[in-house]
Design a protein around this nucleic acid. Structure first.
Lengths: 236, 236
DNA sequence: AACAAAAAACAGACTGGACTGTTTGTAAAA
DNA sequence: TTTTACAAACAGTCCAGTCTGTTTTTTGTT
């Protein structure tokens, strides 16, 4: 995951361009931005928000400082870019796992395990948390992160609407929020205590609890039993 | 909360010493350390971990850089000191609220609301989270923070043992851990989204859920009913 | 009890390094 | 030829850790 996405690596001979002509600049620019965002995320994961520097990002991306500052004028620009890139990656992971499937057909358990495995348990999520905590004292960063999260958050609401289908939307959002908080806390714990062993059990416990709640909030027949049956064959 | 704790403020005339003689140095030192830790926490809350500097701390404490480096040779020393100070503050808050009372007599609801109000919802908790996240990439800081948390964590286990009294200790620890994760996630949400409004409702919901779990795990008669009764008169 | 020597508390300057944002310069594309 | 992409150096700032110097306690000795 280093050079694979650099279809326009610096130093490439002019002849090697697969498709020249109009839009070349735009493509080059987009590629470079992506590379920088990815590098920024890598650096953020490796050294943390506190010691992250823009020169590090340029070096990690294998480009000059000039290129970096050209695409992201300030450090905040760079961080917001990295954050958006991360959000985009989550979308892709979700698409890879569930495609266009209606989440109403997806068992809660499967979806929860997916978000834990592919999002919250990753180091990049902890990196995102670092940004969010840093946003507490950096108003500009905070505003921009919140803006970046604006649309994804409302889309998430829609997905959970599909997933849970509580008649009481307020209870549904509360349940969603509780789950989010729990996963966040688990992510921190896994990061700080360097052991993920308890989390699987907690995930199980929450699923069990959640299915009871779902059964109460969404009085359709046999939800719990069906879910318990499905537990034997996790979705691929 | 600035000069009140400085019984030995720099510049005090030598005659004003309330108690001279043996142990004076030790007291002076302890006071200075406390002042520095408090200043470090203040700074951490105000500017965040990333922009916190040791000169800031010295300035905030109203002492020279020399004094600061004398008591805390490295930045990590200072941060660990601040962290321990925070933990100590939590102990004091708990003692102020419950004294030496056996937590078996305290309703879960009261205790949960207490830890949320006095610990997790405070800015200083978010500051602590910043340290814990920074510890991910700073091995020394991490090791020392974990060591500092060692004894407090096991004491917490004992308290929750008293509080919950589940026959199944494993389930109890899982429940404790789940609650901790939830509160952590809520703290982050309150910090990032700058709105605490949902959290009260979530706290209510968790309490309701928790009391059901408690009733199941600890089959004593009338626990839920008693707890529901007590909800009208919160403990002072 | 007095006093000298050692140790601790504190003050402030210095050093070496590194970072952010800017600016000037060059090559490629529009 | 005008704009965009990239390169590299510069300027100003500031920090962590160290070191030297001063004052205040403590300790050991008589």
């Amino acid at each position: 995951m280093d050079r694979t996405l650099a279809d326009e690596a610096p130093g490439t001979t002019p002849e090697a361009q697969p498709e020249a002509g109009a839009g070349k600049q735009a493509r080059r620019s987009a590629t470079m931005r992506r590379r920088l965002c990815e590098a920024a995320l890598d650096v953020l994961c490796e050294v943390g928000y506190e010691s992250l520097t823009t020169p590090m990002i340029a070096a990690r991306a294998g480009v000059s400082r000039g290129a970096q500052t050209h695409h992201f004028a300030t450090k905040t620009d760079m961080l917001v870019g990295a954050f958006e890139h991360l959000l985009h990656g989550w979308d892709e992971a979700r698409h890879a796992a569930f495609g266009g499937r209606n989440l109403g057909e997806v068992p809660f358990e499967d979806y929860l395990r997916f978000v834990w495995r592919e999002i919250f348990s990753k180091p990049s999520y902890v990196a995102a948390l670092e940004l969010m905590l840093a946003a507490r004292v950096d108003k500009e960063l905070g505003d921009r992160l919140r803006r970046a999260l604006d649309s994804p958050a409302s889309q998430r609401n829609l997905r959970w609407r599909q997933l849970l289908r509580f008649p009481d939307v307020q209870k549904e959002e509360q349940f969603q929020y509780m789950t989010l908080c729990l996963l966040r806390g688990m992510a921190i714990h896994a990061s700080f205590n360097r052991s993920d062993d308890v989390n699987e059990a907690v995930l199980d416990a929450w699923i069990e609890l959640a299915e009871k709640i779902i059964a109460v909030e969404r009085p359709e027949s046999g939800v719990v039993a069906a879910a318990k049956e499905r537990r034997r064959k996790p979705a691929g």
